[in-house]
Simulated assay, not measured.
Amino acid sequence: MGVFRFESKYAAPTKEQRERYMRGECEEHMFGNDGEIVLVLYDEAAYLKDDLEGVRILFTGASDKRKVDDEVRRLLEEHGQKEQRPDEFESGKRR
């Protein structure tokens, strides 16, 4: 079916995608220190929301839905690395 990536937290699946894939009962799982990663599992899709990065990903179809586990692991690892490293940019003013 497909993987649809939305690069803004304000972007979302279309009405057609919601009606086609995101219907019926669902399971919701939260990951991360503050639950910033939310995974919503539907019968025919998986919807992943990363509030820290503002990314939304819709996985549709059985084969693409299986990819969501790898993506959750990748996001958790990426968030963990960001917490461990110092700020990438510093101001030019030093005390």
Rank of each mutant, 00 (worst) to 15 (best):
E7C: 08
D87W: 06
G32N: 05
A45P: 00
E83Y: 10
E28V: 14
K65M: 05
K49F: 09
R56Y: 03
G35F: 00
D64Q: 11
A46V: 15
K65D: 02
S91I: 09
L76M: 07
Q81N: 15
R95I: 09
D70K: 07
R73Q: 14
L52S: 05
R5H: 06
F59E: 07
L75P: 01
A11T: 06
E44C: 05
E88N: 12
E53K: 15
Q84I: 06
V68M: 06
E78Y: 12
V72K: 01
F31T: 02
A12C: 11
E71H: 13
L52E: 12
R20C: 05
I37L: 13
L75S: 01
M22R: 04
K9G: 12
Y47M: 07
L76Y: 04
K15T: 15
Q17N: 06
R5G: 05
G92S: 14
Q81V: 10
E77N: 08
F31C: 00
D51T: 10
K15F: 05
D87R: 06
E83Q: 10
G2T: 04
Q81W: 06
T14A: 09
D70C: 07
S8F: 04
V3S: 02
E19F: 01
I57G: 01
S8N: 10
E25M: 10
C26H: 15
D43R: 13
S91P: 09
N33L: 15
E27W: 14
C26M: 15
Y10R: 13
R73Y: 12
E25N: 15
A62D: 10
Q84C: 04
G2L: 02
E78A: 13
V68H: 04
R85M: 08
P86M: 06
Y21F: 07
E28A: 05
V68D: 04
R85N: 11
E71F: 00
E77V: 10
E53F: 14
L76G: 04
E25I: 10
S63C: 10
N33V: 13
E53P: 03
R20N: 03
E53Q: 07
H29R: 15
G80C: 02
V55E: 06
R23V: 11
M1Q: 11
V55R: 07
Q84V: 12
S91H: 02
A46T: 14
E88C: 07
E90P: 02
M22Q: 04
G61E: 11
E36Q: 08
E77R: 12
H29M: 15
E25W: 14
E90C: 08
V68W: 01
D69F: 09
H29T: 12
R66N: 14
K93R: 08
L52M: 13
R74C: 05
S8W: 13
L41Q: 12
E53C: 10
F59A: 03
R66T: 08
L52H: 09
K67Q: 14
R20T: 12
E36C: 02
R20D: 03
V72E: 02
R94C: 14
K93W: 02
E90H: 10
F4S: 15
M22G: 03
Q17H: 06
R85L: 08
F31S: 06
T60C: 04
